[in-house]
Design a binder for these strands. Structure first.
Lengths: 251, 251
DNA sequence: ACTTGGTAGACTGTCTACCAAGTGCCATGA
DNA sequence: TCATGGCACTTGGTAGACAGTCTACCAAGT
């Protein structure tokens, strides 16, 4: 039973004015609890989510659950079928591809703007993250590597100073991480070399180079995903749950 | 009194499979009614939106209104302050800038992908839109020009075949149009010349060129906005509401 | 003049209960 | 085997209630 514990929303305040801890709206906690459960697989893909069931599970009433489900629906985590209920979204095959393409656009632009606005402080933080990440990677600490990777990318988008890029990139990133988790550990070594070059370009203020490196970086990730997918796919049992048609040609 | 009339959700179906007319959920209609009222200024910026008031206004109960407001909040149309209510969002000065920057990234990537996947049919439609738009422009039909412009851009993003780019770009676009409306008519002539070059590049399948033209196109729009802003701004009374600081240098 | 304390009203956040309509499933029957 | 009818379940929406919180305002004290 996962009960909600109104966790502190780790919002990055302008430093110094730290607002007193205010209890989050329940719907927010529910939203977070659900995404977490979706990402960590507690709620498997395709599972039928019933409002009252979730409400009972989380110890709240239907209302906050409904509101959370609607947000999850808007952001593509679940599919809401009127009169039936919500199902945890089952990603289509071309979806990861599209996500990574969107991410390439968003993050490479972010890198460009980050290079434009980088402060000494930011660059120092970036360097630190690179060091930490590489260390994790070499130590074989997958969890740490993934986390640091996320932090690095997040910091870069934030350095762009563009709220919309930050929001969109964050949304895409969470989705990618969800789909991608099973195949994440693969691309460790090269990835951090690229990160280093990227940080170098940003600290040099070389916009074009930063954007280009970030684009290639994401592109490599996509390729890695494809290779791994191709290697895994033939092994899947042909009597898969839904006999949905393959349509490779669409994208 | 604006009453909701459960209009047929003019969703673009895959053509042919037209689902039987299913009444849209109320929250959807409310959402649309509210965005419309925000865009056309019925609900002024900064206005405090009270749930029961809106509910009465639209002839529905609180619940659908709440749900619509929450979505509006997530998409940045209103700001939800816990325990107080929703206020129509008042854009910060640098916000249009950031929106246009995000749009540049999203749409230029879309143009690149559109050039990659363009079908004969798509290109024909693009050409048609260009013709129509230019005609409107020359005839001085501002409304028609703006609408056709939106259609053209929308079609290009859809041609990218990337659902996420489509969604994000659509979101950004609506916001831009809201802020931008007062200054829209300015940039008519040059804009359609650029559109023509863009369509040419797409039909040639020249990805890089398409992306570059789209980027410059958006950049020009941003510049036009700035110039117009600079020309208008000095006229504003100095005893403005909030004496917040100008920081032009940020973006 | 400025701060403090108190009061009142308004509105949200959440809960409960309830009903209508739509959906999926299953057993029945041809 | 396949269509039909019915049943159980679930959402979508409504109504009402209540606590907590936010804003504003007023009065008294420094």
């Amino acid at each position: 039973m996962t009960t909600i514990s109104a966790g502190p929303g780790a919002g990055a305040e302008p430093a110094g004015v730290r607002h007193v801890k205010r209890p989050q709206p329940l719907r927010e906690s529910v939203y977070e609890a659900l995404t977490e459960m979706i990402i960590d697989g507690t709620l498997e893909r395709g599972r039928h989510l019933v409002e009252v069931e979730l409400a009972g599970m989380l110890g709240v009433s239907r209302q906050p659950v409904r509101e959370a489900l609607q947000r999850l629906n808007n952001e593509g985590w679940v599919d809401l079928r009127p009169g039936f209920g919500a199902m945890v979204h089952v990603p289509a095959e071309d979806e990861v591809d599209q996500l990574l393409a969107a991410r390439a656009a968003l993050e490479s632009e972010s890198a460009r703007l980050a290079a434009r606005h980088a402060s000494k402080d930011d660059v120092a933080k970036l360097r630190e993250l690179c060091k930490v990440g590489t260390a994790y990677q070499e130590a074989g600490d997958i969890d740490g590597t993934v986390r640091t990777n996320a932090e690095l990318h997040s910091l870069i988008t934030q350095m762009s100073g563009n709220r919309f890029l930050v929001d969109f990139a964050a949304q895409v990133d969470r989705r990618v991480r969800w789909y991608y988790t099973p195949v994440a550990p693969v691309r460790g070594a090269a990835s951090w070399r690229e990160h280093n070059r990227l940080v170098k370009a940003i600290s040099d203020g070389d916009e074009d180079k930063a954007a280009q490196i970030m684009r290639e970086h994401t592109e490599h990730t996509r390729k890695a995903y494809h290779d791994l997918q191709a290697a895994t796919e033939p092994a899947e049992s042909p009597d898969e749950a839904a006999p949905r048609r393959r349509r490779r040609t669409v994208n």
